[in-house]
Computed example of a mutant assay.
Amino acid sequence: MQDLLGAPPVRSEVSFGAVERDLRTVLPIELRKVCSLYGDLLISDYLFIFGQRSMVAKNVWMSDFVRGGHPVIPRSVLPDPGGMLHWGHSVEGDKFFLEHRGNGKWVVSAFRRSWGDWYASEQPVVDWLIGVFSGAVATDWMPEWPKPHWFEGQ
Rank of each mutant, 00 (worst) to 15 (best):
Val26Thr: 10
Gly93Arg: 07
Val56Leu: 04
Val14Ser: 10
Gly6Leu: 07
Met1His: 10
Phe48Leu: 05
Asn59Leu: 03
Ser15Pro: 14
Tyr38Leu: 07
Gln123Asp: 11
Pro8Ala: 15
Trp106Pro: 00
Ser76Tyr: 01
Gly83Arg: 01
Ala7Gly: 09
Phe50Val: 01
Val77Trp: 02
Leu31Gln: 03
Gly68Val: 05
Ser76Cys: 13
Glu20Phe: 12
Ile29Pro: 12
Asn103His: 12
Ile29Trp: 11
Ile130Ala: 00
Leu41Ala: 03
Gly135Arg: 02
Lys105Thr: 09
Trp87Tyr: 12
Gly93Cys: 14
Lys33Met: 14
Pro9Lys: 04
Lys147Thr: 13
Ser134His: 03
Leu31Ser: 01
Ala120Ile: 05
Leu78Cys: 14
Asp40Pro: 04
Gly131Gln: 05
Phe16Leu: 11
Ala18Tyr: 09
Gly88Ile: 03
Arg53Asp: 10
Glu152Gly: 09
Asp64Val: 09
Phe151Gly: 01
Ser134Ala: 14
Arg75Ala: 12
Gln52His: 08
Thr25Leu: 13
Asp45Met: 08
Thr25Met: 13
Asp40Ser: 11
Glu92Ser: 15
Tyr119Trp: 11
Val72Pro: 07
Gly6Phe: 06
His70Ser: 05
Leu31Asp: 01
Pro143Gln: 02
Phe16Pro: 02
Pro28Asp: 02
Asp3Glu: 10
Gly68Lys: 02
Leu31Trp: 08
Gly69Pro: 10
Arg67Val: 09
Gln52Asp: 06
Phe133Leu: 06
Tyr119Gln: 08
Arg24His: 14
Arg11Gly: 15
Pro74Lys: 10
Arg112Phe: 02
Gly68Pro: 07
Ser63Met: 09
Ile130Met: 13
Phe111Gln: 00
Val91Asn: 13
Trp61Arg: 08
Ala136Asn: 12
Asn103Gln: 10
Gln123Met: 15
Val56Gly: 03
Leu23Glu: 03
Ser63Tyr: 02
Gly131Asp: 07
Glu152Ser: 14
Ser121Val: 09
Val132Arg: 00
Phe48Asp: 00
Trp145Cys: 08
Ser15Trp: 14
Val60Leu: 04
Gln2Glu: 12
Asn59Ala: 06
Tyr119Leu: 11
Ser36Phe: 04
Lys95Gln: 13
Tyr46Pro: 01
